[in-house]
Design a protein around this nucleic acid. Structure first.
Lengths: 341, 341
DNA sequence: GTTAGCACTCATATTAATCGAGTGCTAACC
DNA sequence: GGTTAGCACTCGATTAATATGAGTGCTAAC
C-alpha cells in the first residue's frame, strides 16, 4: 500500500482541518471539505489505510483522526504552500532602526511572538569568527584600567582591570598603540601564541598587563559562546489547551526562562544546514527533551562577517507552519536589510 | 467588639495553619493546634467574631476559614516573627563575586527564586544621581567614533557615533581631554546649559560633535530610567494551585516577561520608604492590577553612590512571609558586602 | 471501487446519590 | 458570665448511573 495522490489529498485535508480547529477530524468532514466527491464511507476506508501507514492517529475508538508526527512531517515537507504575501508588510513597519543590537533583537522576539501568537526566541549572533576592530585602553584611576574591545559588527565589550603596578597616561597610550597595531583586523583564531609572546616582549615591564588584556580579549569574545538569548510571548502557550496544562506549561516556561535548552537548539540550528535556512522540529524530533509536545521552527539569520544567529518559534504541534515560516523568512530579510542600512 | 489577645492568638493560628496547608482551617484544628485549651465550640464562637471583624473569610458555608487580605496584613504587621538564622547561611555560598553587575543581578534573581520557591525580580540600580567617571573617545574608522562612558559604580555605556566631518587622531585626543577635564566627577544634574555652551565654544569647529557626545552622555545615563529588570522562577507559580489556573498564570507570566508593570513596582518601592526597607503588598494592595491574587514583597538595596535598586518576590497570598523577608534581607546584606569588597 | 446502512464504541455531559468536614445554635454546666 | 457537649444542617466534593452523540468499522448491495 502506498501513499497515492488521493490519500495525499485526504491527509492534507485532515492536517489543514486539524490545524484550524484543534479537534480530531472525522470522515464526514473530509467528505464535505475536499472536492473529491467521495462519501464518508470511502473516506473512512482511506483513513483506515492512512492510519495503518502511520500518518494519522485515532485518539480513541469513537473519535476522528489527528495527524501523527509523521503526518505533520509529510505535510511540512511536501504539502505546505507558502503564502509570502501579507506577512511581509506586517513587519516592515515594526522593526525600527535601532543602533543597539540587543534592543533590536528583543524587539524582533516580541514582534515574532505577537505576529504568530506563539512563543519566540532570538539568539544574539555568535561572534565566533569575528575580527577585532579596536582595542581601547583608558586609565580610570590609580587602580583601574578600562579595556574596551570592539569587534566587527560593532559589538562592544568592556572589561575593568584592577592594576597593581602604577601605570601613567603615556604608558597607557603606548600600550594602546602597540596592541592596536598588531591585533586590529585579526580574528580570534589568528591571534596565536607566537604573536602573544612577541607582544609581551615588546611591552617590556608591562608584559603582565598585556597578557591580562589579551586574556580579556579572548574571554570577551569567547564569553558570547554561552549565547545571549531573548525570548518573548511565553504566555502565548496558554492559548493552546494541549500545552496549557500545568506540567507542560511549567516546563516550557522554565525552558524559555533558563535558556540552557534553547542554547542547544541554537547550536544545533547553526550547525545544521538546509537550503532554505529553515528547520522544523515536530514533536519528538525536538532536540529539547521537555518540548516533545511542541513543534519548533528555527531559522538562521546572517548579518555578514560571520555574525550568525538563530530565530525560532515554539508552539503546539498543530501550529500554522506556513505562517510561521513566512514570518521567520520575513524577519530574516528584515534583519538583513536593517543591518545593511 | 475588639481584637483581644485571645482573638489574636486564634487569628495567628489560623494564618499559620493556612500558610502551611493551603486548606481552609476549621475550629477543631485550631482547638488542637493552640495551647489555649478551648473546645472547638468556643473557637467557633471566636471565629464568628473574627469573621465579623473582617479578618477571616468563609469560602462557603460548610468550610473552614481562610485569612482575608486584612487578616494577612495584621499577621504581617503584628504577629510575624522573623527567623534570621538558617537563611543567612544559605545564600552566602551562592552569590559569587562577579565583576559584571548584570550577571550578579541575574544570579541574585535566580537565587531568590530557588530559595523561596516563588517568582523573583531584581532591578538594576537606578543611575539617577550618578557621577560621570570617565569619557573615552576613540576613532574606529573614518566614519565612526566610539564614545565610552563610565559612571560611578563602574557601569559602562557605549555609543557609536556616525561622523560626517573628518576628524583625525589628534583632534580626538584633544576632545577627549577637553571633555574629561570639564565633566569628570559631575553628576548629570550638574552638567548644565552654561557648561555645555562653554564646552562647545572651546571645541571650535567640532562643536557639533561635542554637542552630540554630551547628548549621548545624557541619553546613556537617562536610558536607564526604563530600568533593566531581571526575573526568575516564573515557573514556580505552578506550584500554587490558586495561581496555576490559565488566566492567572498567563497574566503573571506576561507581567514577568513584559516588565512594564514591574517597573511601576520598582518606582513605587524606591519612592516609598519603610524603616526596614521591606514593603509587603497583599492581594488588592498590589500596585499591579493583574496581580490581585498575589502577594508581593519588595526591598530596596543600596550600593552607595545613589545606586539603589529593588529586589522582590512574587507569590501567592499564602506565602511564607517570614522566609521571604529573611531572604530579601539576607540578599540585601549580601549585595552590600559584595559591593564593598 | 463506491456507498448506504447499521450496530457498536467511548469520551463527554448530565443528573442523582452519597459523604463528610465544618458550621451555627441550643441547652446545660461551671 | 464564659464554656462546652450535642445535634441538625449546609454545601462542596466524590462517586455512580445514565444519557448523548460523534464517529467508527463492517457488511451487503450497487
Amino acid at each position: 500500500m502506498e501513499l497515492n495522490e488521493r490519500k495525499m489529498t485526504i491527509l492534507k485535508a485532515i492536517v489543514r482541518n486539524y490545524l484550524e480547529t484543534g479537534e480530531p477530524v472525522g470522515s464526514r468532514t473530509i467528505s464535505k471539505f475536499t472536492d473529491l466527491n467521495l462519501s464518508s464511507a470511502t473516506i473512512r476506508n482511506e483513513m483506515a489505510d492512512l492510519e495503518e501507514l502511520g500518518y494519522i492517529i485515532q485518539p480513541h475508538t469513537s473519535a476522528g483522526r489527528i495527524p501523527s508526527d509523521l503526518g505533520y512531517r509529510i505535510y511540512v515537507d511536501a504539502m505546505m504552500v507558502e503564502k509570502t504575501k501579507e506577512v511581509e508588510e506586517l513587519k516592515v513597519s515594526l522593526l525600527e532602526k535601532e543602533e543597539r543590537l540587543d534592543h533590536l533583537l528583543k524587539q524582533t522576539a516580541k514582534l515574532l511572538a505577537t505576529n504568530t501568537n506563539y512563543a519566540s526566541m532570538v539568539s544574539a549572533p555568535s561572534l565566533h569568527r569575528n575580527k577585532l576592530k579596536l582595542i581601547q585602553l583608558s586609565r580610570v584611576n590609580d587602580t583601574q584600567l578600562l579595556v574596551v574591545i570592539v569587534v566587527e559588527g560593532n559589538v562592544i565589550k568592556n572589561r575593568l582591570l584592577d592594576i597593581t603596578e602604577d601605570i601613567n597616561e603615556e604608558t597607557v597610550l603606548k600600550l594602546n598603540i602597540l596592541l592596536n597595531t598588531h591585533l586590529n583586523g585579526l580574528s580570534i583564531e589568528e591571534i596565536n601564541l607566537g604573536m602573544i609572546t612577541n607582544l609581551k616582549k615588546q611591552a617590556g615591564i608591562h608584559s603582565d598587563i598585556v597578557a591580562e588584556i589579551i586574556d580579556e580579549v579572548a574571554k570577551a569574545i569567547h564569553e558570547e559562546e554561552d549565547l545571549e538569548i531573548y525570548t518573548s510571548g511565553a504566555n502565548n502557550i496558554f492559548k493552546y489547551p494541549e500545552l496549557a496544562d500545568n506540567k507542560n506549561a511549567s516546563e516550557i516556561i522554565s525552558n524559555l526562562e533558563e535558556k540552557k535548552a534553547l542554547n542547544e537548539l541554537v547550536v544545533k540550528t547553526l550547525s545544521g544546514d538546509s537550503d532554505t535556512g529553515i528547520q522544523v522540529y515536530i514533536g519528538n524530533e525536538s532536540p529539547v527533551d521537555t518540548m516533545k509536545d511542541c513543534s519548533i521552527v528555527t531559522a538562521t539569520y546572517d548579518l555578514g562577517d560571520g555574525m550568525k544567529g538563530t530565530i525560532g518559534i515554539i508552539g503546539p504541534k498543530r501550529m500554522d507552519y506556513e505562517k510561521v515560516v513566512d514570518n521567520l523568512k520575513g524577519v530574516m530579510k528584515e534583519l538583513d536589510s536593517i543591518y545593511k542600512k
